[in-house]
């Protein structure tokens, strides 16, 4: 009903012949010349408008001017078809596969190359080091924690030879005494502890306890 009342407004209120000062909308101005059937009587108040529409007043005119509506409807359908075609080409196929995102991007992210081989890869060849390491204090320190990322070496040992880390930097990074470190963690003041000697003079990195002897 409300919609029909609005129809009346749009169709009936717009006329150059009408000299009343009632409601004007952009459509009225646009189609002002086209409608000349305005009578002041039904436009004096919105209450009367509504009553007019209820009597089927606007309903008849709906059919009379249907041509315009069909043109608009056609335009809408055309625009929708264009939208569907564009959407088909613009939106990736996997968009919405799992949610509001491109599903294929998960596979792309998963396919990025790795740099750290993982200790399993190291241990499959260097089992001798593993034997030493697993008995010492560094049993749970993974190989690449000290030796750095070595996927290239794991992939093809001849392609890249790992560089031995500098123990002066490496050991100090973890074991330099600081009040901030957990109390139970073994810490030394390097200058006092070794008087400048390299750590590996006494400690073998894979099994650092002094009594580990000549272990690697």
């Amino acid at each position: 009903m409300v919609w029909r009342a609005i129809c009346v407004l749009r169709v009936r209120c717009v006329t150059s012949a009408c000299d009343s000062t009632h409601i004007q909308t952009p459509e009225m101005l646009l189609y002002g010349e086209a409608y000349e059937k305005c009578s002041k009587s039904h436009l004096t108040a919105s209450r009367n408008l509504l009553a007019g529409s209820l009597r089927g007043y606007g309903f008849m005119s709906f059919f009379k001017d249907a041509k315009h509506l069909f043109v608009f409807a056609g335009l809408f359908v055309l625009a929708f078809l264009v939208f569907l075609v564009v959407r088909h080409y613009v939106v990736p196929k996997s968009f919405g596969e799992y949610g509001h995102y491109r599903g294929a991007s998960i596979g792309e992210i998963a396919a990025r190359p790795i740099k750290f081989a993982g200790h399993q890869a190291c241990e499959s060849c260097h089992s001798d080091v593993l034997d030493v390491k697993s008995k010492g204090k560094h049993a749970h320190v993974n190989c690449e924690a000290c030796h750095g990322a070595l996927e290239k070496h794991a992939d093809d040992p001849s392609a890249m030879t790992p560089v031995l880390p500098d123990t002066a930097v490496l050991c100090a990074r973890c074991h330099t005494a600081s009040a901030a470190k957990p109390k139970g963690f073994p810490q030394v003041v390097p200058a006092d502890h070794s008087t400048g000697l390299p750590c590996e003079t006494c400690h073998k990195p894979h099994s650092p306890a002094m009594d580990a002897g000549g272990a690697k």
Partner: peptide
């Protein structure tokens, strides 16, 4: 990415791999 390219291959993340403690 929680090293998504690693964890989907059965590896742990780079930070976990490198953490000495």
């Amino acid at each position: 990415t929680l090293c998504y390219h690693r964890i989907t291959k059965g590896l742990t993340t780079a930070c976990c791999e490198a953490c000495p403690t």
